[in-house]
Design a protein around this nucleic acid. Structure first.
Lengths: 251, 251
DNA sequence: GTTTACGCAATTATCATATCTATCTGACTT
DNA sequence: AAGTCAGATAGATATGATAATTGCGTAAAC
């Protein structure tokens, strides 16, 4: 079969496909199967065999196996002869993988997921700010300041609000000089992108900029406790809003 | 070529191979290549082509491709036609992948890595303890208590010290009822396994047990601030020791 | 002289097929 | 019961051929 005939090709190329993934059949399969797993399509049904998957999507078994292997590496699947391929429990998924994260967010908007995100952020980012206050280089401090400037510019309509917000928070993570903290880039970006629809209407942007500036100022004067508290307040506020939303929605 | 003839087979089967990985050629290749990348074997040399890798290790190209795809999924590699396969910068590696973590730790003992670990723990675990104090179920609280009991038993020689310590900290993470926190299982286990050699001699185990008990007590009485502080003290102590070690070693 | 267009070659991407190996099931034996 | 063996199934591996992509050098065009 020619590649042009593949079901995957017509299914997702070229419009729907995630840009961060490559543009070949293997990545297409990865995306389609990964999304289906996260959606829960195989929750109470047996996962297809390699041969079935290959036939259903119109690709070779080699391509199928490569996609399955990638999903195995991300913790979504495991495969054994005779038993077949099985979906792993969610607890073993690698939630910090940006593909997995993307599929999860794409699934459906969930306030609970947003709360989980921000419960993590409230642990990570204040500590990152504290580390940045102590150890960030001049260039890294400048990047944080640049992020703040972009937020100010965005308020005047000269920049994108979300992009500026992300730039600020990512710059703080970078300033921590700890590779593990830097890993939260994607997570923070996703959390902000998701929560922007949620918080936009509730609370004015100007107050938020003051909160961000407090973080920046503390980092500049190398006040790690101050930076930690300021960042904690920033995210704590969002968390409070989320809690209220859950309380009113759930009664 | 028969599987029994493969270089991988003699290279790593059956003794050296990580037990968490499967026992087939693909996982063998994954382990060998992943380790080589993390060690830095390809830092200033071009990464081999698929054909070369396959020939060098005596396996087929299909197996090689599957291993490369898994490493791509973990962020260590990227592949494009004509350009070849290239090692990604460390910043895009997925450090929360337990394989990557394992290769990193295996590389060589580094106080800096241990510090990075514990700088993350000091963010995560106190917050997890605070969440557990508020939301953990009775069963989860009991699991934390069981971990503490095992630590006491270990002191009397009736249990393994490291395993008990890990059980306690993992139970706290589970008690947070947040899937993102639960992801740090492997990281905390690795950090504890690594740091046990480091802290054992410096500070008595009994003091540590009292610190752990303080966390447990706070969680039991649903005192989230107390749990956060107690856990923070626990890990902060380790961090201080690491800092002192770096200060005396560096100059 | 600079830019564009084109074609070659290298490398990954894909396919098809055959065979091997691990493991589950169930029957058979002890 | 407990152990052993045979068949069936699904993943694991090998092989060789073809397709698609793209970096790069070269020639043509301006």
């Amino acid at each position: 079969m020619n590649r042009k005939d593949s079901a995957i090709t017509t299914e997702i190329f070229p419009s729907d496909m995630r840009t961060s993934l490559g543009r070949n059949l293997t990545y297409g399969m990865l995306d389609v199967i990964g999304r289906a797993i996260v959606i829960g399509e195989y929750d109470n049904v047996a996962f297809p065999t390699e041969a079935e998957l290959a036939r259903k999507h119109g690709v070779s078994r080699a391509v199928t196996r490569e996609a399955v292997k990638m999903l195995t590496a991300k913790g979504l699947l495991s495969a054994r002869p005779r038993q077949g391929t099985i979906v792993q429990p969610q607890s073993s998924w690698n939630l910090f993988d940006s593909d997995v994260l993307h599929w999860l967010l794409e699934r459906k908007f969930s306030v609970e997921l947003l709360r989980h995100f921000n419960q993590l952020r409230v642990a990570i980012e204040p500590e990152a700010a504290a580390l940045a206050a102590m150890q960030a280089t001049d260039a890294e401090r400048a990047a944080i300041g640049a992020g703040l400037s972009r937020m100010v510019a965005a308020e005047a309509g000269a920049d994108n609000t979300l992009a500026a917000d992300i730039a600020f928070h990512v710059a703080v993570l970078e300033g921590s000089r700890n590779p593990f903290y830097k890993q939260f880039r994607d997570m923070v970006a996703s959390a902000l992108a998701t929560s922007i629809h949620f918080t936009n209407r509730i609370k004015g942007r100007s107050a938020s900029i003051e909160d961000h500036r407090a973080v920046y100022d503390a980092i500049l004067r190398r006040d790690s406790d101050g930076a930690r508290c300021a960042m904690r307040r920033l995210i704590g506020d969002v968390l409070t809003l989320i809690g209220e939303a859950e309380a009113t929605a759930a009664p």
